[in-house]
Simulated scan of single mutants.
Amino acid sequence: MDIKAFFKLSYGLYIVSSSYKSNQSGCVVNTLSQVTADPPKFSVTISKNSFTKKIIEKSGYFTATVLTKKATMDLIGEFGFKSSESTDKFLKFNTKLDENNIKYVTNHMASRYSFKVIDSLDLETHIMFIGKVLEAEILNNDDVMTYSYYHNVIKGSTPKNAPSYQKEPAKKGYICTVCGYFLDSDKIPDDFICPICKQGTDKFKKI
């Protein structure tokens, strides 16, 4: 099975966030999808291991923003490969609050949506939330980032918690022990910096 065939599906990349009491949480997903138009409802699937999933369950609300092609690897790395339980992911970026006081990033986002959870489905490793749209807004008209663009142009990797994660066949090179970025090279330069999580060579191991 060639798992790269899944990258041809027309997913987008999104940041889903939620808030409960003093906790503001967010993560990158590629599973946001409109399921009905009238009334407008969306679905999103998030790993049971995700701190954001826990916050959504507690609050009953979430927001989502659509990444554009101008979104930086620093932004994707922060929300895709770190945990909101121990990191303030929003600190380095421009943010606003929706009507439920949930933070959302405005840097390089095409649009944003706010939702009330009206149903959920247990998918063993993940939870699918069904959200009724409360707010929707266009933020800019830049081209949106697709999952295919993320993999084929930016050369990004997929976090293990992502619904689309697939274990790839063994390969040789260097892997970042922080975010999983793979460098296909016989030798790693001394000054190499991970394009996703910005770690140095001391965080890479040879495989």
Score class of each variant (00 low, 15 high):
residue 106 T to P: 07
residue 70 K to V: 03
residue 82 K to D: 13
residue 95 T to P: 06
residue 146 T to V: 06
residue 157 S to K: 03
residue 103 K to M: 10
residue 117 V to T: 11
residue 141 N to V: 01
residue 163 P to N: 01
residue 154 I to S: 14
residue 131 G to Q: 05
residue 99 E to L: 09
residue 80 G to Q: 01
residue 154 I to R: 13
residue 164 S to K: 01
residue 78 E to G: 02
residue 114 S to Y: 04
residue 144 V to F: 04
residue 78 E to F: 01
residue 71 A to T: 02
residue 99 E to I: 05
residue 81 F to Q: 08
residue 106 T to L: 09
residue 89 K to S: 07
residue 105 V to E: 10
residue 147 Y to R: 13
residue 95 T to N: 13
residue 137 E to S: 01
residue 123 L to V: 00
residue 92 K to E: 15
residue 138 I to M: 06
residue 139 L to F: 03
residue 92 K to G: 14
residue 85 E to H: 07
residue 102 I to E: 13
residue 129 F to V: 03
residue 143 D to E: 14
residue 76 I to A: 12
residue 104 Y to N: 06
residue 82 K to T: 13
residue 130 I to P: 02
residue 76 I to P: 09
residue 155 K to F: 12
residue 100 N to H: 13
residue 130 I to C: 07
residue 140 N to S: 12
residue 110 A to Y: 00
residue 86 S to A: 08
residue 73 M to A: 04
residue 131 G to L: 03
residue 147 Y to S: 14
residue 137 E to P: 00
residue 81 F to A: 11
residue 91 L to M: 09
residue 101 N to M: 10
residue 106 T to F: 07
residue 148 S to M: 14
residue 162 A to G: 02
residue 142 D to P: 00
residue 133 V to K: 09
residue 92 K to W: 11
residue 69 K to S: 12
residue 126 H to D: 07
residue 100 N to I: 03
residue 82 K to P: 05
residue 155 K to Y: 12
residue 143 D to G: 03
residue 144 V to M: 03
residue 148 S to T: 14
residue 142 D to F: 00
residue 139 L to A: 06
residue 156 G to W: 03
residue 157 S to H: 10
residue 71 A to R: 01
residue 102 I to L: 12
residue 134 L to F: 07
residue 113 Y to T: 04
residue 95 T to E: 12
residue 98 D to M: 05
residue 129 F to T: 05
residue 163 P to Y: 02
residue 159 P to F: 08
residue 77 G to C: 07
residue 133 V to R: 06
residue 130 I to D: 10
residue 99 E to D: 15
residue 73 M to R: 01
residue 143 D to F: 02
residue 132 K to T: 13
residue 104 Y to E: 10
residue 71 A to P: 00
residue 154 I to Q: 14
residue 138 I to C: 05
residue 127 I to C: 10
residue 136 A to Q: 11
residue 82 K to N: 15
residue 105 V to K: 02
residue 76 I to F: 11
residue 121 L to K: 08
residue 85 E to G: 12
residue 140 N to K: 05
residue 90 F to S: 13
residue 134 L to Q: 12
residue 155 K to R: 12
residue 91 L to C: 11
residue 146 T to C: 10
residue 92 K to S: 15
residue 148 S to N: 15
residue 124 E to G: 00
residue 87 T to K: 08
residue 102 I to P: 08
residue 97 L to Q: 09
residue 164 S to F: 04
residue 159 P to K: 05
residue 73 M to N: 10
residue 90 F to L: 09
residue 122 D to P: 00
residue 71 A to S: 10
residue 112 R to K: 13
residue 146 T to M: 07
residue 79 F to I: 03
residue 94 N to K: 06
residue 123 L to G: 00
residue 161 N to A: 14
residue 141 N to Q: 12
residue 133 V to F: 07
residue 154 I to T: 13
residue 91 L to T: 06
residue 136 A to W: 06
residue 68 T to P: 00
residue 120 S to T: 04
residue 153 V to T: 14
residue 119 D to R: 01
residue 116 K to I: 06
residue 139 L to H: 04
residue 105 V to M: 05
residue 73 M to D: 09
residue 86 S to D: 09
residue 140 N to W: 04
residue 130 I to H: 06
residue 140 N to H: 09
residue 147 Y to W: 14
residue 127 I to T: 15
residue 72 T to R: 02
residue 112 R to Y: 11
residue 88 D to C: 03
residue 79 F to M: 09
residue 127 I to H: 07
residue 93 F to M: 11
